[in-house]
Simulated scan of single mutants.
Amino acid sequence: MAGNLVPFLLMVIVQLGSAGMNIISKLAMDTGMNPFIHVAYRQLFATVSIAPFAYFLERKTRPKLTFSIIFQIFLCSIFGVSVTQITYFVGLKNSTPTIACALSNITPAVTFIFAVPFGLEKLGFKTKAGQAKLWGTTFCVGGALLLSVYHGHIVGIAQSSIHWRYAENAGGKDGVSNHVNFILGPFLLIMSAVSWAIWFIIQARLSEKYNAPYSSSALMCLMASFQCVIVGFCFDHDMSAWALTPMIRATSTIYSGIVCTALAFCLMTWCIGAKGPLYVSVFSPLLLVIVAILSWALLQEKLYIGTLVGSVLIVMGLYGVLWGKNKEMEKDDDNKEIVHFGEEDELKPTK
């Protein structure tokens, strides 16, 4: 019981932390904070946070760095951090936290699409697992498109009785924010999922050669810090824009870097080791539920029919892909056991 409770609680904490990031980051950008500057600060704080873990936990086991590994980490920093987070936060600024979390759930489906040509995944049309992944991907993509192009009527939910004065002052009178663009926002969020999926492909290759997750993450965040600072200055030359005032800006960037990068990575790494990657992935829709509730309660966000139906399709598709992947992993484990027992029989001396 205790062995199952600890990973469960840790993953709930990770999702709660990410939900808080979406809310306060949205508020920070609604005050006029440039999302490029927000991402740059996040990488700086994340690098400082995760570097001690890399030094103390992996100083004796860290593999030797080669040019090939450094180049792969550089690619990971571009796709996994810089492009992913810039498009996500610009998309978040131009949409709502609920839409941003919903579209982030298409990542497993997009990863599956990219993994097939690289030989990291099999289609397997004739198996139930293959069909589940195919239909799950279709549902995810369909839900993302529906959420992006169709809004429909507002769902009749009673207005929250919670009045957060700061959020009311930062937001617009007709919803969560005055900075909502239902075309640009979802498009950038989908591009963020695509970039994140590319990172999964590169990271899978990197992990085979450089099995030091804290060190590679610290280097990745360090490289991304330089990239994001340069991009931030290209888009905003005014030094006053880099000021972390009002306080919500400093809170948002420090919180995002420490809680949602350094701490979240450590907790997820532990849970992956204890329960496997599939267990961690299953908690992704929980973030959507938490953010939807918090956005309704704190930001007075309105929920549209298109957002609701699209989110449901994405979650159904996500679980379809995860179920299919789980079945394939179980089958591979069974095949390995059969091969192992077969080898033992061959090694037995004959009479």
Rank of each mutant, 00 (worst) to 15 (best):
A2R: 15
N4D: 13
L5K: 12
L10K: 15
Q15N: 14
S18M: 06
I23E: 01
S25K: 00
F45D: 00
T47N: 03
V48I: 10
S49V: 00
P52R: 00
F56W: 14
E58L: 15
T66E: 10
F67Y: 12
Q72P: 03
F74N: 01
F74P: 02
S77M: 05
S77N: 06
F79N: 02
I86F: 03
L92Q: 01
T96L: 03
L103W: 06
S104L: 09
T107D: 05
P108Q: 02
A109W: 05
F112V: 14
F114M: 15
F114H: 10
A115H: 12
F118M: 14
F118N: 12
K126C: 05
T127S: 15
G136K: 04
F139P: 02
F139K: 01
L146N: 01
S148C: 04
G152F: 08
G156I: 04
I157G: 06
I157E: 02
S160F: 09
S161Y: 05
I162C: 11
H163D: 12
E168Y: 10
E168N: 08
N169M: 11
A170V: 09
D174E: 05
H179A: 03
P186K: 03
M191K: 02
M191A: 10
A193Y: 08
A193S: 15
V194M: 13
V194R: 04
S195F: 08
S195V: 09
A197E: 13
I198W: 14
W199H: 07
I201P: 07
Q203D: 11
N211W: 07
N211Y: 11
A212Q: 10
S215V: 10
S216P: 08
S217K: 07
M223N: 12
F226M: 14
Q227I: 08
C228G: 03
V229H: 09
V229I: 14
I230S: 13
F233K: 13
F235W: 03
H237M: 06
H237P: 11
D238W: 05
D238Y: 06
M239R: 14
L244W: 11
L244T: 06
P246R: 14
M247F: 15
I248R: 05
T251D: 07
S256V: 01
G257L: 00
G257P: 00
T261P: 00
L263N: 01
C266M: 07
T269G: 05
G276R: 08
Y279H: 11
L286A: 13
L287R: 09
L287E: 09
I290N: 02
A292V: 13
S295E: 01
Y304T: 07
I305E: 13
G306C: 09
V309P: 10
V309D: 12
M316P: 13
L318C: 11
V321S: 05
V321Q: 06
G324Q: 04
K327P: 03
K331L: 14
K331G: 06
D334W: 10
K336L: 11
K336E: 10
G342K: 14
G342A: 13
E344V: 14
D345T: 10
